[in-house]
């Protein structure tokens, strides 16, 4: 007997899926607004992507092809583990090719290749509240979202500019969605923020531990916060990829020896292998 016998398709029971599906529809109807949901304990720990896994489990079906990435790569251990989870509990096809996937679950990156209207990207979110570092009380931040009271965030950004000469947020860079809701894009590098804007694919965000779901429909305005005299800049390491030579992809820095030797390679492994052909 397999250890997984006795579980429903995609692990969650149907009532839980309906609850998550209702939350997803409201999330799509109010882009960038966090919807509380009855997040369940998953067989993977909180912090490993339980929110993303629940969202994927609620949407995935036999016709889907799933790609899972962590840090842009398909072969990182957590990506492997989540991909296996769905392969065994939902029996769905999996792929490492961005172009072939209908659902992409991700931690910390958006693929380099532009996503299409037929794809859905599911983000794993550790902390859905963009104001959490400025105001720890969720009762208070909820009120701030209700009133569009985002002055605290602008003050923080302004203080950064005064102190460092630039906005010193390099990942999980806050965005304004549909000109109304301040949103955490999850800890993707700020380099990926421009991809959020008017993306053709539906973007779903799941935070399991914090029990929140939110979404960005296709072609929705997503603006990275900035100032007129300090516009948002997406930056990357100023090197070509050491494997494929790309000058436009986001790079990992690999330490190659004890003398400070460095190699820069694409973080998006599928993009890199396509680009190397």
């Amino acid at each position: 007997m397999s250890a997984l016998d006795g579980y429903n398709f995609a692990y969650l029971d149907e009532q839980t899926k309906r609850m998550i599906r209702r939350a997803l529809l409201k999330a799509v109807a109010i882009p960038g607004h966090q919807i509380p949901f009855g997040s369940r304990e998953m067989p993977l720990p909180y912090g490993w992507g339980t929110g993303g896994i629940q969202v994927t489990a609620a949407i995935i079906g036999p016709a889907d092809t799933l790609k899972v990435i962590d840090q842009g790569a398909d072969d990182t251990t957590n990506a492997v583990s989540i991909r296996r989870f769905f392969a065994s509990l939902a029996g769905v096809a999996t792929t490492t090719r961005t172009a072939e996937a209908t659902i992409i679950q991700t931690r910390h990156r958006i693929p380099e290749r532009a996503l299409t209207v037929d794809q859905i990207i599911v983000y794993q979110v550790p902390q859905p509240e963009p104001l959490s570092k400025l105001q720890p009380s969720r009762a208070e931040t909820r009120r701030m979202h209700a009133l569009s009271e985002y002055g605290l965030m602008h003050v923080k950004l302004y203080e950064d500019v005064a102190r460092f000469g630039e906005i010193a947020i390099s990942y999980d860079y806050p965005v304004m969605v549909n000109h109304r809701h301040l949103m955490s894009p999850s800890p993707i590098p700020a380099f990926d923020n421009p991809k959020l804007h008017r993306m053709a694919a539906l973007q779903l965000f799941g935070a399991g531990r914090e029990k929140r779901i939110y979404a960005i429909p296709p072609h929705t305005d997503v603006k990275s916060l900035d100032f007129e005299d300090h516009p948002f800049r997406a930056s990357r390491a100023p090197h070509p990829c050491g494997i494929c030579g790309s000058n436009s992809s986001y790079l990992d820095e690999v330490v190659t020896d004890n003398e400070g030797g460095r190699l820069f390679v694409c973080s998006d492994t599928d993009y890199c292998s396509e680009n190397s052909k």
Partner: peptide
């Protein structure tokens, strides 16, 4: 299970 999933994707 499958029919609800298929219908949900249409609604989504």
């Amino acid at each position: 299970v499958r029919d609800a999933q298929g219908c949900f994707r249409a609604v989504l």
